[in-house]
Design a protein around this nucleic acid. Structure first.
Lengths: 235, 235
DNA sequence: GTCTATAGTTCGATAGAC
DNA sequence: GTCTATCGAACTATAGAC
């Protein structure tokens, strides 16, 4: 109990030069990171309530008591997992503002492509988003906050697209953003159930293309993104 | 153990005239139905693994032992809940084939409108769909079967729309159907998290309208459905 | 058909040795 | 930093009285 400072603030090392391999974590946190990685898989398979600290600890190679030295409670572990994932997303995809709606759309394609290579992480979000609609769920606050932020960022981007003349003046920012979020979440649900039946990236591109043709001033197609579009579709 | 026949086949009463109030259940099954209704709420809030038979039984006003007289196991209870829901959906919305793609779309609007008035049921599906992407989950088979069926029905309907001249010949049945399912599921996730932020029916109508304009031969809007469209939107 | 009782696990969290 | 030991609680399922 005396080892831990504020509620599970990651023990960063502010004085160590900042530029360590990736992200600025202290080297002594490796064990902590291994726990977080294992926890993702368990939360993905069992959800929060039915996951067990002992089983997670076993995956890491320690006991339940050892695990609770790093995270003061199960709930703390969940929140830490979510915050780390979100932080990672932000610095990987949303560290800079979007130049345009088209740029935003292409960035979302990259995100989905990334998610399709992280099945554990993606399934975890599917399970927890569903579970956390209950206000008493420990991740409820996290997901409501997250949805509001994503929705605001997305609709702001669309509004700027209208202001710049990229998008038609009568574009319904909010509705468009909510629909886009729905499509992404829905594809992830289907994909998690039977991954081989659905190429999320290709399907999202198809969706975004139609939307962009519909709301862009020129009616032009979405430009091909940097993400591998050269070989696979040929459409 | 001797009271139950095959694995929880609902104890219908084939000899009682078939036309009883609704569905042909025996009157002695009221208790059973109350258990199923209570279970929906629990599976919605806790998922499968973390739901407890004792708590469900308490809601019904009996003990855990009493509950297990009606369902031989927790898993049996889950499957019974899902099958009953599906059966109900089918007889309420899909008892007859679709006349056209437009008819199908309007019927889906009714379904979503219905779902928005059954929050417990809808949340349960959100939670269980996420959980059941794990192949070991007791509802995994149910949801994969369900998705395949819905996908087939939907894409078949679109194909018939093409054949009849209602839809453009180059319509991609499968992609269109997968996207539509994604949109519906995604809206339900958002709605469950913060119901007041999203009118699912209105948003789905907006989506279907754009799709229909895009794939219908005439490029016409989706005709207004029988579902209350007269007063609320004015668009 | 519902109850009580209970077997047999497993859980989260704490305390303390090393 | 990790382990062992342990507490109190909750869980599913079964057995048997009524």
């Amino acid at each position: 109990m005396d080892h831990k400072d504020g509620r599970s603030a990651r023990t960063k090392t502010p004085g160590n030069g900042e530029g360590a391999a990736r992200g600025g974590y202290a080297v002594g946190d490796e064990r902590r990171l291994r726990i977080l990685d294992a926890a993702v898989e368990h939360f993905a398979q069992w959800g929060f309530h039915a996951s067990s600290l002992a089983r997670i600890a076993k995956d890491v190679g320690i006991t339940q008591g050892g695990l609770l030295h790093h995270f003061r409670s199960k709930e703390d572990l969940l929140v830490s997992v979510l915050e780390r994932s979100e932080e990672h997303d932000i610095e990987r995809f949303f560290s800079t503002e979007f130049d345009s709606a088209a740029d935003c759309f292409l960035r979302l394609l990259e995100l989905v492509e990334y998610n399709s290579r992280r099945p554990g992480r993606t399934r975890m979000f599917n399970v927890l988003v569903g579970e956390s609609s209950d206000p008493g769920h420990p991740a409820h606050a996290f997901f409501t906050r997250r949805y509001r932020k994503v929705l605001r960022d997305l609709s702001d981007t669309l509004r700027r697209g209208v202001d710049s003349g990229e998008l038609k003046p009568d574009t319904d920012y909010l509705a468009e953003a909510q629909e886009l979020i729905a499509v992404m979440d829905g594809f992830q649900l289907q994909w998690a159930l039977e991954p081989e039946w659905l190429d999320m990236t290709e399907r999202l591109r198809r969706y975004l293309d139609r939307v962009y043709r519909s709301i862009s001033t020129t009616g032009a197609a979405l430009p091909p993104g940097p993400a591998g579009d050269a070989d696979e579709s040929g459409r």
